[in-house]
Nucleic acid binder design. Structure first.
Lengths: 204, 204
DNA sequence: TTCTAAAATTGAGTCAATTCTGTTTTTATG
DNA sequence: CATAAAAACAGAATTGACTCAATTTTAGAA
């Protein structure tokens, strides 16, 4: 089954992603010309477009790597949350934020976000939406867990609350990547401050 | 003072915006070629670029019209809010949402949002951020008003709360424009549901 | 009225993403 | 081991946003 063709395919995918990731970081998204990516990956322009529908999809593949790592790291917190609602939320938010610039620069995030709103039905757009949904889901799972433990009132609408927290965090993150000078500690502190209002409302 | 030159300038601005608005709606943002906008406005391509730095800025001018109308309509609610926290928030949110597709189609919103994240330092990017800030400010003003009236607890951090409500609404609106099928009533209902958690927390 | 500098306009030219079409490589089959 | 169909590849051609040097128009001084 796994013939030459399949192996070469995987190999080329990897080469393209590696070349693109390096060039995006060095030269920025716009600065990284498809021609240069093709040259560095040692394939032709046509081949790149055979593998990815457009330049944005290449970036999309990198974003997907990042977010999936973040989701994985988040599982730990959900399974074993700090014994205090505020800290539990902060721990999860912290993981998301601290991991976020591992593969991606702020400029790359901006581009990725832009493309996902611009073309919500493209493969990347849909993948991005799915990733957002997974993150929302994870926050909901944390809340459900806290309800189980008895740290959050049972009568709270966990689904709406999860969405509310995710939406707020996500908007704050969008603003964070829009300003190159914005720092992570300030971002975390602001989100903590906002969540405090909710924490007061939902604690037992 | 207001000589021929100034009059022609205003006239051409208007022609370009009108031509662009019509074509954006008909053909979509990408579909509306600069050449076509120029032809319809009866100016040359170069002139368009003399008036606007790029295609996005033309859209930006239209967005600005829309949001400023919305802000104006919102002032009424802040001055005279319904005598109930949930209804007051819903009234303001309602105005924002119902007005939002007056000049702009969902596709145009998507493009506008995308550009504002992609190029946060461009004239349009900065203008868009300023508009968002004005909306946040208006929500904060409403909360302050409700605190005055005695409908919201005095010890609530109004600034953070306003941000939280705006961020959540804005993310919901982003998702709304990303899905062509999404409807306004569902959007409003979802936001109301999310705000309910807050309303319970902040009411006297 | 005539002249001149500044401002505005023009559209052909540039640049880079994407498409298209012919060629090459791989796989499946006899 | 041939060979035909299918898949992948290459890179030239296309397309459309944006630039820029040349030209035209305007404002105001003489």
């Amino acid at each position: 089954m796994s013939g030459l063709r399949a192996r070469q395919k995987a190999y080329r995918h990897r080469r393209i992603i590696e070349a693109a990731a390096a060039l995006f970081r060095e030269a920025g998204y716009e600065g990284a010309k498809i021609e240069a990516i093709a040259a560095q990956a040692e394939v032709s322009i046509g081949t790149i477009y055979n593998y990815y529908q457009n330049k944005g999809d290449i970036l999309g593949a990198i974003v997907s790597l990042e977010v999936n790592e973040v989701l994985n790291a988040g599982r730990g917190v959900v399974a074993n949350p700090p014994a205090n609602v505020g800290d539990a939320l902060d721990a999860l938010v912290g993981i998301y934020i601290e991991h976020s610039l591992h593969y991606l620069s702020k400029e790359m995030w901006r581009q990725a976000m832009a493309i996902s709103t611009q073309l919500p039905d493209s493969p990347f757009g849909q993948a991005y939406t799915a990733l957002d949904r997974s993150l929302t889901e994870q926050i909901r799972a944390l809340i459900a867990r806290l309800q189980e433990i008895g740290l959050v009132r049972q009568d709270i609408d966990g689904a709406s609350l999860g969405e509310l927290i995710f939406n707020n965090m996500n908007m704050m993150f969008i603003e964070f990547v829009k300003r190159d000078k914005a720092g992570m500690p300030e971002l975390r502190a602001a989100i903590r401050r906002q969540n405090r209002i909710l924490v007061a409302a939902i604690g037992v």
